[in-house]
Design a protein around this nucleic acid. Structure first.
Lengths: 249, 249
DNA sequence: ACCTGAACACCGTTCAAGT
DNA sequence: ACCTGAACACCGTTCAAGT
């Protein structure tokens, strides 16, 4: 929608700039300000420089205004966070439930949901403590419910599963985005998991066996597996647990 | 350890203060500064005024110094967060694993872990994105491993369960502390769940049935259950899933 | 109705200077 | 070695004033 602006972010220090020397060489606001444009820019800044960089002041600067101007369209930081999460959640798929393979559909939905967060690094950080009350989050919950019910999961168990799903996916996405931000701060493109796992493995191995008999002897098991392996494991646990719970009433 | 100080926090504006009118009427630092005292005060401020209030500047003020003084004992905000989490994690119990009732022990450990976070509101906020590398967190991981292995859970599944446990408990504790902070900001002692659930139930009921057939018809199921009910449900899902996973190799 | 500059009350971190 | 004041480069939010 306002993606024309995207190219100008992070263009590095401008070499040539024909304008009088003055305090703020920022572009004049061409288009009218809207909540949509504010969310666009928030997502762009988050993707470029991480969650913490996407402050109201920074967003205003990118839009060529002062921070006070945003308050005509967004009540406060919290409301902006809600709009961001809603925009992202709206991109999650809405499969039609098939009772023959609801469990695989449910797993796939969770993979897709995580990938949507990954495509907007940092957005998940606004997720925790938020009531899913806007369009996008409601659609995701409706989808989740339809898949669970297609599998014969009791309504109450399905409803609570939405909660558990949100908490778990949110936590994974938040954690990943913290790692991504840290890597960027360190000048890397992405976190170097294998290097880190090696170090961590050595550390666990070196723990005193009398006080940490299991961690020191099972150091390898503690550190093996990247994000994907651990996520697939968690999916098995969650869906297996859901089936067992449903089966025994 | 430095709990003598606790009483002076939040004592409200002091009525009587015998000192020359000056810029900063703060108490002189009697004791030497240590990392322990800094963590003490951080936990006290978080408990009194919420996570966001526990800034390095605020902690320094409570200790009667300037913010720069803290840097002799704590490298930065991130290291302080690690110390806080470690202090809290160290309070988690260390039951001796009993193969006859490992599953109930595991559940109880998770309940206890959540209660420890609850006793230090806000501390969980520092948990996400943190590698559990200090004493307290390692002890918790060791305990978790011992309970899983006592139940015949394969080592790899047990190791990954530690990860899943940390993510889930952390997310629940973070979410709860956000609600507590919000309630305090609104002047209440604790969040009023029943009032909120009523409103939210009405909201779900009022959703357009053509686009949200399940959420609108199952509004009651969506909102029933307090934190405890939902947590017990999640425990059943996680432990049931772990058993199913272990059983089928 | 929408936008603005300036101000208020905050942050984390650094650094030269003191003891 | 430990502590300090002052400064730097930031925050979110408010408010009177402009159009």
């Amino acid at each position: 929608m306002a993606d024309k602006n995207a190219r100008t972010f992070h263009a590095g220090p401008l070499r040539i700039r024909v304008s009088a020397p003055g305090p703020a060489p920022r572009p004049a606001p061409k288009e009218r300000l809207t909540a949509e444009r504010i969310v666009d820019v928030a997502l762009e800044v988050m993707a470029a420089d991480g969650y913490e960089a996407a402050s109201l002041r920074r967003i205003a600067r990118e839009l060529g205004t002062g921070p006070a101007s945003l308050y005509a369209h967004v009540a406060n930081r919290e409301e902006l966070d809600q709009l961001i999460v809603d925009r992202v959640a709206a991109q999650m798929p809405t499969p039609v439930a098939d009772p023959e393979r609801w469990d695989e559909q449910l797993k796939q939905f969770m993979r897709d949901a995580l990938d949507v967060y990954r495509a907007h690094p940092g957005s998940a950080r606004a997720t925790l403590g938020m009531i899913p009350a806007m369009e996008g989050s409601l659609r995701a919950a409706e989808t989740l419910m339809s898949l669970c019910l297609a599998g014969g999961v009791p309504a109450q168990a399905a409803a609570w599963f939405c909660d558990l799903f949100g908490l778990y996916i949110g936590a994974v996405a938040v954690e990943e985005s913290i790692w991504v931000d840290r890597a960027r701060d360190a000048g890397a493109d992405a976190p170097d998991h294998s290097a880190l796992d090696g170090q961590l493995g050595d550390y666990f191995s070196s723990l005193p066996p009398d006080r940490f008999p299991l961690l020191s002897s099972l150091a390898r098991e503690m550190v093996t597996g990247d994000g994907e392996d651990r996520f697939e494991y968690a999916l098995d646990i969650l869906i297996g647990g859901l089936k067992a719970y449903s089966a025994r009433g």
